[in-house]
């Protein structure tokens, strides 16, 4: 008798538990689908400006001002892109931007890596004090140093050349990158250095042959963010470059806007072309981007 009642109790408990679980699962499902809908709605909101941009860039001028607006342009005017590239000396701007971006990037990566190696791996008097001073310079907004730097470059006769935009990057690539790389180098085991030294490797050799290859992911992050920063830079070129043939893409776009006001089909086409390398860079290096933001707390 008692055995049966235990079974009944047991069964009731099972039933209750099942019901509880089902309810919980249902609740979780409702919660997840709500989140999903909200997220999808937000994603659409974020994508709309992009789609609008693409759509505008393929329209005729007259159909920009149709009401209601056309999302799919009729006719599709691919020529806008050709025009956008030829109305202003676009390829000159592109060449200038590439020269500045890549030469300064090389300088930044090499010198930041070298300096970070010294801070992370070598013991020398004054190291920690200098590192702390370096970190405290991160607090200083560039506006404070802007004017004296401008006057220094003016005295050197570097105005309207690329030098003010490139040369400073060869001096350690900035406190932030040094800090980032130093933190990464600290995680590489020191035994590797010792082993290399026993095998007769020089100090520079350890940096170049041991640390550099192992630091590839970190250097990749530095390169990605550096590329983005230089490509987007506006204030630097605005201050240092005067003549149109020295302009970068950012300055060129601004010029374009002033010359072809309300010709939004051209402006959007040109903007899209300028954004394209950034989009490609992002697409290829997505994983590193996300990691980089998470590691550095840099918002991009």
């Amino acid at each position: 008798m008692s055995g049966v009642s235990v079974d009944v109790d047991q069964q009731r408990i099972y039933a209750l538990r099942r019901r509880f679980r089902r309810r919980k699962r249902l609740l979780a499902f409702a919660q997840r689908s709500t989140s999903y809908i909200v997220l999808a709605f937000g994603a659409v909101l974020i994508m709309i400006p992009f789609l609008w941009m693409v759509s505008t860039s393929l329209k005729e001028w007259s159909s920009l001002f149709l009401y209601p607006p056309q999302w799919i342009p009729r006719p599709v005017v691919w020529r806008n892109y050709v025009d956008a590239l030829t109305l202003v000396p676009f390829f000159t701007f592109l060449k200038n931007t590439c020269i500045i971006t890549f030469t300064s990037l090389i300088g930044q990566i090499l010198s930041a890596s070298m300096v970070a190696f010294s801070f992370a791996r070598l013991r020398w008097p004054g190291r920690d004090v200098i590192f702390i001073i370096l970190l405290s310079t991160l607090m200083l907004p560039y506006e404070v140093t802007l004017i004296p730097k401008f006057m220094m470059f003016r005295a050197l006769g570097w105005i309207n050349t690329f030098k003010p935009l490139i040369v400073p990057d060869y001096f350690g690539g900035g406190a932030f990158l040094v800090f980032l790389l130093r933190q990464f180098y600290m995680t590489i085991p020191a035994e590797l250095d010792d082993a290399a030294r026993i095998d007769g490797c020089s100090t520079v050799g350890i940096w170049w042959r041991i640390i550099m290859p192992l630091a590839k992911p970190a250097l990749g992050i530095v390169a990605i963010f550096g590329f983005q920063g230089h490509w987007n830079d506006f204030m630097g070129p605005l201050i240092y470059l005067n003549s149109t043939e020295k302009f970068t893409l950012a300055l060129g776009l601004n010029l374009f806007k002033n010359q072809y006001t309300a010709q939004y089909q051209y402006i959007m086409a040109a903007s899209l072309i300028v954004m394209l390398p950034l989009l490609v860079n992002f697409y290829i290096a997505q994983r590193y981007f996300v990691q980089g933001v998470v590691i550095t707390g840099l918002k991009g």
């Binding site: 010198s111 930041a112 070298m114 300096v115 190696f117 010294s118 801070f119 070598l122 013991r123 020398w124 008097p125 004054g126 190291r127 200098i130 001073i133 370096l134 310079t137 200083l140 404070v144 140093t145 802007l146 004017i147 004296p148 730097k149 006057m151 220094m152 400073p168 060869y170 001096f171 350690g172 900035g174 406190a175 040094v178 100090t203 520079v204 940096w207």
Partner: peptide, 28 residues
């Protein structure tokens, strides 16, 4: 030797700090 190399390799940022940050800061 290590100390000398340390200073030498860190020299870019030390100079950079003086030239592009601390110097201009005082100047401004």
């Amino acid at each position: 030797q290590e100390a000398i190399w340390g200073w030498v390799l860190a020299m870019p940022i030390i100079l950079g700090m003086l030239l592009w940050t601390l110097g201009p800061m005082v100047a401004s």
